[in-house]
Amino acid sequence: MPDSKETFEAGMKVRREMFGAAGADDQIANATDFTRDMQDMVTRYCFGETWNRPPFDRRMRSILTIAMLVGLNRPNQLRVHIRGAIANGVHEDEIREILMHAMIYVGVPASVDSFMHAAEALKEVGRG
Score class of each variant (00 low, 15 high):
residue 106 V to Y: 01
residue 40 D to T: 10
residue 44 R to E: 00
residue 121 A to M: 11
residue 91 H to S: 13
residue 85 A to E: 00
residue 83 R to F: 12
residue 75 P to T: 12
residue 88 N to E: 12
residue 31 A to D: 05
residue 95 I to L: 13
residue 75 P to F: 14
residue 86 I to G: 00
residue 91 H to C: 04
residue 77 Q to R: 03
residue 14 V to F: 10
residue 15 R to C: 04
residue 84 G to D: 01
residue 127 R to L: 15
residue 80 V to W: 13
residue 26 D to H: 04
residue 70 V to H: 02
residue 38 M to A: 07
residue 74 R to E: 09
residue 91 H to A: 15
residue 56 F to G: 04
residue 64 L to R: 03
residue 100 M to S: 11
residue 122 L to K: 09
residue 58 R to I: 10
residue 75 P to Q: 11
residue 30 N to Y: 01
residue 61 R to H: 00
residue 127 R to M: 15
residue 71 G to L: 11
residue 69 L to S: 00
residue 6 E to L: 09
residue 42 V to E: 06
residue 32 T to S: 12
residue 25 D to W: 05
residue 40 D to E: 06
residue 108 V to R: 05
residue 15 R to Q: 13
residue 75 P to G: 09
residue 113 D to S: 12
residue 24 A to L: 12
residue 33 D to P: 07
residue 105 Y to Q: 00
residue 54 P to D: 13
residue 34 F to Y: 08
residue 25 D to G: 11
residue 118 A to F: 14
residue 82 I to S: 05
residue 88 N to R: 02
residue 88 N to D: 10
residue 117 H to Q: 15
residue 69 L to P: 02
residue 43 T to Y: 05
residue 57 D to S: 10
residue 27 Q to F: 12
residue 73 N to D: 14
residue 59 R to I: 04
residue 38 M to C: 03
residue 88 N to W: 08
residue 65 T to W: 03
residue 21 A to D: 14
residue 90 V to A: 06
residue 32 T to C: 02
residue 100 M to F: 15
residue 87 A to V: 03
residue 96 R to Y: 00
residue 46 C to R: 00
residue 67 A to K: 01
residue 105 Y to E: 03
residue 35 T to R: 00
residue 120 E to G: 09
residue 115 F to A: 08
residue 109 P to F: 04
residue 88 N to K: 02
residue 86 I to C: 01
residue 54 P to N: 15
residue 72 L to G: 02
residue 38 M to N: 07
residue 88 N to H: 03
residue 34 F to D: 03
residue 72 L to W: 02
residue 36 R to V: 04
residue 107 G to I: 10
residue 96 R to D: 07
residue 57 D to W: 04
residue 57 D to Q: 08
residue 125 V to I: 15
residue 18 M to F: 10
residue 40 D to L: 10
residue 117 H to Y: 11
residue 66 I to Y: 04
residue 41 M to I: 08
residue 124 E to R: 07
residue 98 I to E: 05
residue 14 V to I: 11
residue 16 R to L: 04
residue 47 F to M: 09
residue 66 I to T: 03
residue 56 F to T: 09
residue 89 G to D: 00
residue 75 P to W: 13
residue 38 M to Y: 10
residue 87 A to W: 09
residue 21 A to K: 06
residue 101 H to P: 02
residue 60 M to W: 08
residue 20 G to F: 09
residue 50 T to R: 06
residue 107 G to R: 08
residue 49 E to L: 02
residue 14 V to L: 01
residue 53 R to G: 08
residue 85 A to C: 07
residue 115 F to T: 04
residue 10 A to K: 06
residue 51 W to Y: 08
residue 20 G to A: 01
residue 33 D to G: 08
residue 79 R to M: 07
residue 61 R to T: 05
residue 92 E to W: 11
residue 40 D to K: 10
residue 91 H to R: 11
residue 82 I to D: 03
residue 40 D to Q: 10
residue 85 A to V: 10
